[in-house]
């Protein structure tokens, strides 16, 4: 661990552990993410990176340690947890757009029902967001009528509509056809440029190079390296990371 950020961490994980039965999926994870930082988490499958991402808004519970968002410790189930989640945007591998709602309704549902925003205002803001991610003309359609790339961009707009402090991306392009990956990555790169705090679990090394401030490399439930993309890709310290990168390069 080369980078240690202290003080004004927006997302902070301290000595986080989690087990799935016998399997120790998160081993003593310490990670601080500052406001405006883009952290890319990479690593082989089964290394615990998705679990880490999902633990940050408590879609996965943890056994011990603590996680804090903007200085507030993650509460147990209940209203308070819901409040906190409203500040943390999440984008899933499988989009998870609400299948029975139109594209527009997918984006307005949160602001209207969770934040109590007036319908007209929510719809205006939602349209602006949908335009921004390039799917404005799809607003009246149902999710199933859109391509994967379009659905994922709507999912990003849905998360942004809550005006989150931080955005989590759990392998956002892994379920997409190759030609649709870029349209989603472009939106994410734009978002990174605008100063959004992002934690991105991905296999897209191009995105890590282009948009990340830090690369966190995980293997077997541990954070093995935490450095700048430049450092990580050109001069990895651990054998585990060297091995991982060499496999990527030979393919």
């Amino acid at each position: 661990m080369t980078t240690q950020v202290s003080g004004d961490a927006l997302v902070s994980l301290n000595s986080v552990n989690k087990h799935y039965g016998q399997l120790h999926v998160l081993k003593d994870i310490n990670l601080q993410v500052r406001k405006g930082e883009v952290v890319v988490v990479i690593g082989p499958s089964g290394s615990g990176k998705s679990t880490l991402c999902r633990a940050i808004n408590r879609l996965e519970t943890i056994d011990d340690g603590d996680i804090a968002i903007d200085g507030k410790k993650l509460p147990e189930e209940g209203k308070e947890l819901a409040h906190l989640r409203a500040d943390v945007g999440m984008v899933f591998q499988s989009f998870n757009l609400f299948a029975h709602k139109t594209i527009l309704e997918n984006v307005t549902l949160g602001p209207i029902k969770v934040k109590g925003v007036a319908k007209g205002t929510a719809e205006r803001e939602a349209m602006a967001l949908l335009e921004r991610v390039g799917v404005g003309h799809q607003a009246p359609k149902l999710p199933a009528q859109l391509s994967g790339g379009q659905q994922q961009r709507v999912a990003i707009a849905r998360a942004l509509a809550m005006k989150p402090k931080v955005m989590l991306f759990d392998e956002p392009t892994s379920a997409l056809d190759p030609e649709m990956i870029n349209e989603v990555l472009d939106v994410m790169i734009q978002l990174a440029k605008e100063g959004m705090t992002m934690i991105v679990v991905t296999h897209e090394m191009g995105f890590a190079r282009k948009a990340a401030d830090r690369v966190v490399f995980m293997a077997d439930g541990q954070i093995v390296e935490d450095s700048t993309p430049e450092e990580f890709f050109t001069n990895p310290q651990s054998n585990r990371a060297k091995d991982f990168l060499s496999k990527l390069l030979t393919h």
Binding site: N57, L59, E77, K79, A82, H83, L84, R85, A86, D87, V88, G89, M90, F92, S94, N96, L97, F98, A99, H100, L109, G110, K113, V114, K115, A155, R158, A159, M162
Partner: peptide, 22 residues
């Protein structure tokens, strides 16, 4: 699909909202 409920929870919905709206 469980992802529907997870997506609803991640935008800050309470248990009753997740169930009733999604």
């Amino acid at each position: 699909p469980v992802g529907q409920a997870e997506a609803a929870r991640s935008i800050g919905m309470t248990f009753t909202q997740v169930l009733g709206l999604v």
